[in-house]
Structures are given as C-alpha cells and as structure tokens.
C-alpha cells in the first residue's frame, strides 16, 4: 500500500473515466450530421482519446519518479490532525448542503458555521457569535439587499 503513488492513482482514474465516457459517447451520440458534417460525437471522442493518451504518459512518469506516496501523508502527528480536520470540514459541508434543503437557510448556515468552529476548536461563546455574525451578514447581503431567496425547502 505504501508504494502506491498518488499520481498513478489519478492517472488511472483519468484513464478509466475517459474510457467510460468514450463508450457512452459512442453508444449514444450521432457520428455525423444530416449533411455529412462531423456530428456530436467527434469532439467528445477526440477529447477522451487525448485524455487516455495523456493519462498513460502520466502513469509512466509517475513510475519514473515516485514523488509522494499515498500513505505518507499520515506520517507525523501534525499532518494527521490536519488531514482529519479536512475530512471533518468536508463532511460538515456535505451536511450543510443536505440540511439546506430541509430547514431555513439561517438555521442551516448557523449549524454549518458552528460545527466548523468546533472542528477548529474555537471557544464556545466566540463560535456562536462568529457563526451568527457571518450567517447574518451574508443573509442580509444576499437575501435582503440583493433579493436572492436563500431558502430552498
């Protein structure tokens, strides 16, 4: 596991994704227009082809100079902490996007900001004030001043 190179993985993802897209393009899109001009399929196909070619080059390059190992990021304590923190923030962001669809924006936004503050280990009182402040200011700016309705539910 330690030897898997990040660039190799990304290269493989590119290769597979482009392959699938190419398959979809070839099965669903027309090859040519009624008058015989190139049809909808030409460009996606060209793009997928070049992506696959470049992905192979990137994979070969990644074998030549294995720079960053995938597991290496968890080596020291500091890195591990920030990695976990990023994951938490992402989860919080996803939670916010879900909540936004069910409860008013002000509440969802406040929860999102408050959880972020918690993830960053801020003090409780400060967290509440800061979350309410940012959410409120943005709400006034967008919803009141610019008349964008922010409630989805």
């Amino acid at each position: 596991m330690k030897k898997v190179n990040g660039n190799t993985v990304i290269g493989l993802i590119f290769l597979i994704a482009a392959g699938i897209t190419m398959y979809i393009a070839n099965t669903t899109l027309k090859a040519s227009a009624p008058a015989g001009d190139p049809g909808s399929r030409l460009f996606p196909n060209l793009a997928c082809g070049s992506i696959m070619l470049l992905a192979v080059i990137i994979i070969i390059q990644s074998f030549k100079n294995p720079a960053k190992a995938f597991a290496g990021i968890l080596a020291d304590e500091d890195r591990r902490q920030s990695c976990i923190r990023t994951l938490f923030i992402l989860a919080d962001l996803a939670l916010f996007l879900v909540l936004w669809n069910f409860i008013p924006f002000l509440a969802a936004g406040f929860i999102f900001m408050f959880l972020q503050c918690m993830i960053f280990r801020e003090k409780l009182v400060f967290s509440i004030l800061y979350s309410a402040g940012v959410t409120g200011v943005l709400y006034v700016m967008f919803a009141v001043f610019l008349k964008v309705r922010l409630n989805i539910y």
């Binding site: 002000l106 709400y139 006034v140 919803a143 009141v144």
Partner: peptide
C-alpha cells in the same frame, strides 16, 4: 432576522 431584514 426579520427585524434586521425589515430595517435593511
């Protein structure tokens, strides 16, 4: 929020 928005 309503009060704030109204004033604004």
């Amino acid at each position: 929020a309503k009060v704030i928005s109204l004033t604004c």
